[in-house]
Structures are given as C-alpha cells and as structure tokens.
C-alpha cells in the first residue's frame, strides 16, 4: 500500500491552507502530496498550488459549470483509485462537507468532519473536533484506511509561497457518471464582505431587535468603538435576512474571538455561544433577567436594548474622547 496524501477544495485559499497540513503529513510518511483541480484547465492555478507545496496536481478537465457532489465525488474516487492516495484532506466549506461524506460512502471509508487539528499518534492518523455544541473536544483516530478528513478555513496557516518548487501536472479527462439531479439556478447570496473572524470588537444583534431598521442602534454603538464590526444570531441572518450571512456567529456560522463581544437581544442558546465563547470580554444586554446569556457573560445589563444601546454609545463616546 502507498500512503500518499491528497488535498482538495474548490476554494483556492482553503486549498492552499490544506496543502500546508498535507505537506507536513506527507513528509512524515515520506510520501508525495497531490492536489486536484476540477473544471477548466487552469495551469496558472496548478503552478500556484505547486509553489504552495503540492508535488503533483491533477487537472480533471471537464465542462462542469457548477459544483455537484455526485460528479465531484465520482472524479475524486477515480483519481484515488488511480493514485492510491490513502489520506484525503477536503476543505470544509458546505460543498466540501457533503462531498467528503458522499465520497466516504462510495469508497467505504471513515470520515471526520471539521477537524480542528490533525496529527499522527501511534502511527495512526488522529483528529480533534468540537462536539456537544462546543462543550467538548473529541479526539478520534482512524483504525483503517483510506481516511477522509475535512478542515475549515483558518485552521491551518498556508506555507510560504516558493516559486522554485518543482511539481508535476497531470491533465486528464474523466467520464462522469450521470446523476439524476441537476442544478437549475445559482444565485449569489447577498454579502457585505464583513470579516467577523478578524474583528477586535463585535456588537452582535439577536431577535430582541424588532425591525431591520433598528440594527442602526447597534451600528451607532459600534461606530464609537475601534475595530468594530456587527455580528448577529442565526435567525437574524437565516430567517429574517436582516443582515447577510457573513455576520452570522455560532455553531453553524462564524467562530469569532474578539477582545470585546457585546450581545444585544440575544438569548444565549448554546449554539450561539459555540461561536463566541473564545471572546475576551463578553457583555450581554437583555431585558429578561433570567436570560441564559448572562451565564456566559462577564458583564450584563438587564434592560431594554432600545434604551441601553443609545446610552451606552453616548457614555463610551465620552469615555474614549
């Protein structure tokens, strides 16, 4: 058996981060690191992946316009069979998660989703992941190969780009099994290109806000603070769509660690806490004295956010100036 490492994400940045971890694992095994590009033949991208650590880049040339798990898993399965790769790292965006899981079913492999760390322990590939909505980390080990692992963005740092790296580019066409599903529309979600993950101070809005316009109270508070960004709970982004999904914080949204997190009108359900529990100082504003959020906060104000937020903004302005 050959123990090569294969990396794939349809997202360039994420793929580069995976190449970094992949190359560390491949070195330990004394084996090769391969990555895959699916779609247009993009040699420029292939060379970039080589500069970031890939030793072999498979370009599966085809006319596929949009990502579809059925087709992508089929291509990756064929490449795995051809190359004997046994350690497969896949980028954990939504496409990647369903792709990895489907692939695991097709090739009868174990799969661990959303690894926060990956290493060899007793020569076995081992991964850590968060479970129980952020209450625990489980350490899981493969006792069989192939092994499929998925990793989100920003878990691993990319290697330094080295244009002198040498690698091999393999271009191939694969027949794709026809699937009975088809993509009939792709619409870009509204996005405000907010980066909550790197924010130093976050003012976060929950269902305690009664109208979309009222988010302005959070904005006005945020404006008085440096490095400020607006965040929100899942219902504000997913149900009400008052803010774009790049503001969404929690288990199924973004994980943040600002030095100050202000939660206004957020009840403090465990799935929200899972996304902000690593914050420096947590402040909660809620009119319900029994709200769960106070248990996860350093400071809390019991009160109506419509009264508290403007007063807090004024007080902060005076303090800072």
């Amino acid at each position: 058996m050959i123990y090569m490492v294969l990396v794939f994400s349809d997202n360039r940045n994420l793929n580069i981060e995976l190449l970094s971890k992949g190359s560390e694992l491949a070195k330990e095994l004394g084996e090769k690191l391969t990555t895959i590009i699916i779609g247009k033949s993009d040699e420029e991208l292939a060379n970039e992946y080589i500069a970031f650590g890939a030793e072999e880049v498979y370009i599966a040339e085809n006319e596929i316009e949009f990502f579809k798990s059925e087709e992508f898993s089929d291509i990756i399965e064929k490449i795995i069979n051809e190359t004997n790769n046994n350690y497969i790292l896949i980028g954990s965006n939504k496409n990647g998660k369903e792709l990895a899981s489907r692939l695991a079913g097709k090739i009868d492999a174990g799969c661990i989703i959303d690894c926060s760390n990956i290493y060899f322990k007793d020569k076995k590939i081992t991964a850590e992941r968060t479970v129980y909505s952020g209450n625990a980390i489980s350490i899981e080990q493969f006792n069989s190969l192939p092994a499929i692992l998925t990793v989100s963005s920003k878990v691993f740092d990319p290697l330094k780009k080295d244009e002198k790296n040498k690698g091999n580019i393999v271009k191939k066409k694969y027949d794709i099994e026809k699937s009975s599903s088809k993509i009939i529309n792709v619409k870009e979600m509204q996005s405000e290109s907010v980066n909550v993950e790197d924010a130093e101070i976050i003012v976060s809005c929950g269902r305690g806000f009664k109208n979309k316009e009222d988010i302005k109270y959070a904005n006005e508070l945020a404006d008085t603070l440096k490095g400020k960004t607006i965040g929100c709970s899942r219902p504000i982004a997913a149900d009400l769509k008052w803010l774009s999904e790049d503001h969404w914080i929690g288990l199924s949204g973004h994980k943040v660690k600002p030095k100050l997190y202000i939660a206004a009108g957020i009840s403090g359900q465990i799935q929200h806490i899972a996304g902000m529990r690593d914050s420096g100082i947590i402040v909660a504003i809620n009119k319900d004295p029994e709200a769960l959020i106070f248990k996860s906060a350093d400071y809390g104000i019991v009160g109506d956010l419509y009264e508290v937020l403007p007063k807090l903004a004024t007080a902060l302005k005076n303090k800072i100036s």
């Binding site: 998660k97 990895a100 899981s101 489907r102 079913g105 097709k106 799969c111 479970v131 909505s133």
Partner: peptide
Amino acid sequence: FSGQIGPKIAGL
C-alpha cells in the same frame, strides 16, 4: 454536528 450521515447514506 458533522452533517456527515445524510450525504454518506446517499453515497452508500
């Protein structure tokens, strides 16, 4: 919270 089981069944 892995979202794995559904697509894995589809693959199987």
